[in-house]
């Protein structure tokens, strides 16, 4: 930036702080802020803080790189604004507009001050525009990141929720799987199943896949791995809850489940497990 040293923006901002702030607020009010989500007084406070930090930062003379230390406080401020807006339910456009709407009042001032010097005006507007674009993009980036964090947290919670190992009978465990089986889930599932096998000394484990929407080669692979690991520890696995479509898919995919005992329903698998453990079920009363 050849003009860095002589940029008029810091001076102009300092001289007209109040007017710029008022214009900017007006700009945002005119564009229509979400009154249901954000009070005017809060917006005013945010704008004032941003303008203050922005003026401070821009006075250091670095108008090109917002990742530098001069801009740290501005970045932090925008991060917190973006985060709170994400949580309140603003759209990405509304969030980014907080920064982009600053262009209008700033350019207006620049035009007023430098109107007679066309070349300098263009130069200033260009650098200011660049700078504000970068800050706006930063806001969007944070918005995205916050959203991703939410998704990640939900994924983790889902994972914890969805892999319970239940004891059905002495020596018989069941693992009802609900939802898609991916590698990370299989890992957790396998670990908790094996831990339970050790804890309870169970010899039979039933893996029920009624709740698994689709089975592809990878899912089948994961299932096979779990069964093999349980077998290595000395427990037999029975896979139950295979729906007709899934049986068809498994055969068409050429997955070999020949070494594994499979049953159509959990009830069938449970009866088999009881039989293997040496239990017998007898009805004490005839059916009515």
């Amino acid at each position: 930036m050849s003009l860095n040293g002589q940029s008029k923006i810091p001076q102009i901002l300092k001289n007209h702080e109040a007017e710029v702030l008022a214009d900017w607020l007006g700009e945002q009010m005119a564009a229509g802020i979400r009154k249901d989500l954000l009070k005017e007084i809060e917006l005013r406070e945010e704008c004032r803080e941003f303008l203050e930090l922005f003026t401070d930062a821009i006075q250091q003379g670095n108008l090109t790189n917002i990742q530098s230390t001069e801009w740290r406080s501005v970045r932090e401020m925008l991060t917190s604004v973006s985060r709170t807006r994400t949580q309140k339910g603003f759209t990405p456009t509304e969030t980014a507009n907080f920064v982009f709407s600053f262009k209008q009042p700033l350019f207006k001032r620049l035009r007023q001050e430098l109107g007679q010097n066309g070349e300098a005006l263009v130069e200033e507007i260009l650098s200011a525009s660049n700078l504000i674009d970068k800050l706006g993009l930063w806001t969007t980036e944070i918005y995205q990141k916050t959203r991703e964090e939410v998704i990640l947290r939900q994924q983790e919670e889902l994972m914890e929720l969805s892999t319970p190992v239940v004891k059905l009978w002495e020596g018989i465990l069941a693992l009802p799987i609900i939802g898609t089986l991916d590698s990370a889930r299989t890992q957790i599932m396998m670990e908790s199943l094996l831990e339970m096998i050790v804890q309870t000394g169970s010899q039979v484990a039933i893996i029920d896949i009624t709740g698994v929407p689709t089975v592809d080669t990878l899912t089948a692979q994961h299932l096979l791995k779990t069964v093999t690991a349980a077998r290595l520890m000395g427990a037999d696995c029975i896979i139950s809850g295979i729906r007709p479509q899934i049986a068809q898919t498994i055969v068409y995919l050429g997955v070999d489940l020949a070494d594994i005992t499979t049953k159509a329903s959990l009830a069938d698998a449970f009866v088999l497990a009881l039989k293997r453990s040496g239990f017998a079920i007898a009805r004490s009363k005839p059916t009515i």
Binding site: M190, E191, L194, E195, I197, V198, G201, S202, Q203, K225, T228, A229, A230, R231, L232, M233, G234, A235
Partner: peptide, 28 residues
């Protein structure tokens, strides 16, 4: 008969692709 394999060991063997077919296993 191989007995008392730890869960971590079982997972490792499976990940290594060693299913130890032909070996019989028991919990203890």
């Amino acid at each position: 008969v191989v007995v008392g394999m730890q869960p971590a060991v079982a997972i490792t063997l499976v990940e290594l692709g060693l299913s130890l077919k032909g070996i019989r296993t028991a919990l203890n």
